[in-house]
Design a protein around this nucleic acid. Sequence first.
DNA 1: AATCACTACAACCGCAAGCGA
DNA 2: ATCGCTTGCGGTTGTAGTGAT
Length: 250
Amino acid sequence: MRKPCCDKQDTNKGAWSKQEDQKLIDYIRKHGEGCWRTLPQAAGLLRCGKSCRLRWINYLRPDLKRGNFAEDEEDLIIKLHALLGNRWSLIAGRLPGRTDNEVKNYWNSHLRRKLISMGIDPNNHRLNHSFPRPHHHHPSSQTAGTQMSFGFIKSPTNTDNNIHPLKSSNCDQESDAGSCLENEFCGDRNDHQLPDLNLDLAISISSPNSSTPLPSPPVNAKEEQNLDEPKMSMDLELFVSSSPTLPLFR
DNA sequence: AATCACTACAACCGCAAGCGA
DNA sequence: ATCGCTTGCGGTTGTAGTGAT
């Protein structure tokens, strides 16, 4: 077993009781999210600040959506994962009402498996010949019927922190993920080496009434949380330029 | 009915970044 | 510059729930 994160003997651990939840909610309603270190004592909770913060962010916050992920959310997570890797907080920042923990769990329990079953390596979003090959992609053969597009691959020598876009995701209009990937990566193209490219990520609202993308979101995940993002399906748009690479992430 | 295997998700931990003294 | 504290992130674990045998 691991060592406890708090040295205090008298802090509760494990599942939260309703009374504890209520104390935390009441305190934050009155005083707002403040110093997590001192919050437990001030709120009368026998928990460490870290535990309170996690409970609030992942479970108690009033703006959480909860419930099943919609198809467009799945699609967006996959696209963002291809672009960002395991930057769960950044990915969650693009999904209103979702937390990094929720996205991470959903990825690990659903989406990873889904990609693997389609013959796609979830680590690099490539067709993986050691995984089960996708049968020739009838949309109906996909469990959720999700239309997905994967416009990105990693260079084989790169880590998650260095993922290259191969092409913007315009192939999703007529083909599903597998065939899109096949078009992109069939043959020996897995060895393709790509130059460093600058990425500019933007979300646009795929509502019939709004055809113009929103301005590029701030790169800081905290600032992203403050965006007044409409709760509707979104399309991911990538702008690839040859300008010097800008720091996108911390 | 009992047991086992698997899944989903809440919660924990260690680490690193950020920031002020 | 560096030290200590706090916060936030990502990886991992624990466990309740559910289906299969």
